[in-house]
Simulated assay, not measured.
Amino acid sequence: MAIWVLFHLFLFLVLEPTTANLEGNALFQLRIEVDDPENVLQSWDPTLVDPCTWFHVTCDAQNRVTRLDLGNAKLSGKLVPDLGKLERLQYLELYMNSFVGPIPAELGKLKNLVSLDLYHNNLTGSIPPSLANLSKLRILRLNGNRLTGRIPRELSKLGKLKKLDVSNNDLCGTIPTTGSFSKFTENSFKNNSRLKGPELMGFVRYDVGGCN
């Protein structure tokens, strides 16, 4: 019986992927998807036990990824939904690159995220309402992209949000004025030619012709 138990324990240790492995796999999916002309991701070796030895990755004492610093790294390509698997991530810094495509809705799973910096890329599509799940978020900078659609009203529930910048996009509709949005100035929303100004008394003012 003891041998049988030890055998199954051995199989569990060998076959069961560790959290570090899962997070390494998630990050490696990003490496696969992006073009990296400066080889800043060269150290991202999927054969290592965990990603905590990789450049631009910071981990906590439990070898869980807490920070990803890839700002101004000359990367291009699409952001991968796998980033939503980095459960303890606090800082996602991907600004000033050439990322294209949508912001993955899966980023709304990053419940510990404090700062989300995706500014100055070429991201398209709408702002995911799922970002309203990031209850610890203090900084959200999406400016300088090509985002379209309305500003999700759900984001006004982010009570800890101190910095918001969605300027220089192609957003439309009206600007929320309730919750955390009550303290943001027009600088947070400037240079969106299809935004029609603040909502009146917290009600959505729909525009003739729609907003896509």
Rank of each mutant, 00 (worst) to 15 (best):
N169V: 11
Q62T: 15
S167P: 10
A20R: 02
S43R: 10
P152T: 08
L30Q: 03
P152R: 07
A61C: 12
L48Y: 00
L9M: 11
I127R: 08
F7A: 14
H56R: 12
Q62G: 15
G210F: 05
K160W: 06
I175P: 02
P176I: 04
H56G: 08
Y95E: 06
S98Y: 03
H56L: 09
G108T: 04
F28A: 06
S182V: 13
L11K: 02
L70M: 11
L86Y: 01
C211Q: 03
L134A: 06
D35K: 14
N121T: 07
E33Q: 15
H8E: 14
L79F: 04
Q42E: 15
L113W: 01
W4A: 12
G24L: 14
V34N: 03
L110S: 05
L155G: 01
V5L: 12
R153Q: 11
N192W: 08
R205M: 08
T148P: 07
G125C: 13
E23F: 03
D117Q: 06
L13A: 13
D207V: 11
E38R: 11
K163C: 09
Q42D: 14
S130R: 05
N133D: 11
V114A: 08
C211Y: 03
I151K: 00
N143D: 13
G173P: 01
T185E: 10
K85F: 06
L15T: 07
G101I: 01
G159N: 14
N121M: 14
G202M: 00
L134K: 01
G179I: 08
Y119E: 09
P81T: 02
L27F: 04
F12R: 02
L123A: 10
L134E: 03
I3D: 15
L107V: 05
G179P: 07
R205G: 09
K109A: 14
R146K: 15
D117N: 09
L27A: 12
I3C: 10
N21R: 11
A2W: 10
N39E: 15
S193G: 07
L75D: 13
P51K: 01
G144R: 00
G209F: 04
M201P: 00
M96E: 12
L89G: 02
D207M: 06
K85N: 15
S167L: 07
V100Q: 05
K74V: 11
A26V: 11
L13G: 13
L195G: 00
V34W: 00
R153I: 06
F184T: 05
K74P: 05
F189M: 06
K157Y: 03
L164Q: 08
D60H: 04
G101M: 00
L11I: 13
G71V: 09
N169W: 09
L68E: 09
L68F: 13
S180A: 15
A20K: 03
L200G: 04
Y95L: 02
V14D: 07
L147Y: 01
